[in-house]
Design a protein around this nucleic acid. Structure first.
Lengths: 146, 146
DNA sequence: ACAATTAATTGATATATGCAACTATTATTT
DNA sequence: AAATAATAGTTGCATATATCAATTAATTGT
């Protein structure tokens, strides 16, 4: 039916697509606030950073245009998961602060994601998973240099 | 700086994002027609099928709404990469046919993708890659059942 | 012949993305 | 200090994608 030797992007893409489908469904059902994958990713990235975060940094980190980030933050702010706070030392900058509600929702989504991954990884050995991570990191780090 | 234990979706997502960034850049530079990742994926899926293909099948295969597929096919048709041909036996159906131009563009894009993957896989052993594919397929097939 | 089903389409709405132009603010240069 | 650069954010515009609900046209089942 289907030929073998699919390009790797498509193979991984199909896996991600299926994962996201289930993830979206579950977070839609179980979390207090519905987040898209992009919103979830950005919220998580902001939350993880230990230093103060501004939009420009997020744009670079996520590899997107600053206006794309701006608009996702708009919706995160509407949902009261994030606030913009002007840097008094440089009023061009907005610090991005995750609200309590944001932390709670993020925690819920992360829990759902980790549980899902637990389920999906059933039957794989630790060494298989280690290799998997190794390959992913290898490919990503090489792609970053291109 | 960044915590470890990122959810797997994000780790894979970052890899895909970097891959797609380079792929988009190269196909934009080298291919006769610019395709988005979605257009590329759909064109490839149509081309690979050995039986006649209709939109409904593609929607199922790609896990998307039929109207999403319809609109991507609209743009593929505008770019003259695909044609809709009415099934004379059941005139509700449109067979999706890849044009010569479509085949040429697809070939160009696939070549670019395979070459990119060659580069990115440099330094990985065959056994690492086999394990990688095994894990991907494992996760996808489990996700499909949820 | 009538009803149910099917494939495709359309319209409405939401999200995401990049580019270019613009504003406000800060930094640099002369 | 005044003029000029550079920076962070914002806005407008165009394109792409996605889902849902309603509609149309064609086919199938009763």
């Amino acid at each position: 039916m289907e030929k073998q030797s699919l390009p790797i992007g498509m193979i991984v893409g199909r896996m991600m697509h299926m994962m996201f489908r289930v993830l979206k469904k579950r977070t839609g059902e179980q979390a207090d606030v519905k987040l898209t994958i992009e919103q979830f990713g950005l919220l998580h990235a902001i939350s993880m950073k230990e230093e103060d975060v501004i939009q420009k940094d997020m744009a670079e980190m996520m590899g997107k245009d600053k206006s794309a980030i701006l608009r996702i933050i708009d919706t995160l702010e509407e949902k009261e998961l994030v606030r913009r706070v002007v840097d008094t030392n440089d009023r061009r900058k907005n610090f991005l602060m995750v609200t309590k509600k944001g932390e709670k929702v993020l925690e819920q989504c992360l829990k759902i994601e980790f549980e899902l991954m637990e389920e999906l990884q059933q039957g794989l050995s630790k060494s298989d998973l280690d290799t998997f991570y190794k390959v992913i990191n290898h490919i990503r780090s090489r792609a970053e240099k291109l």
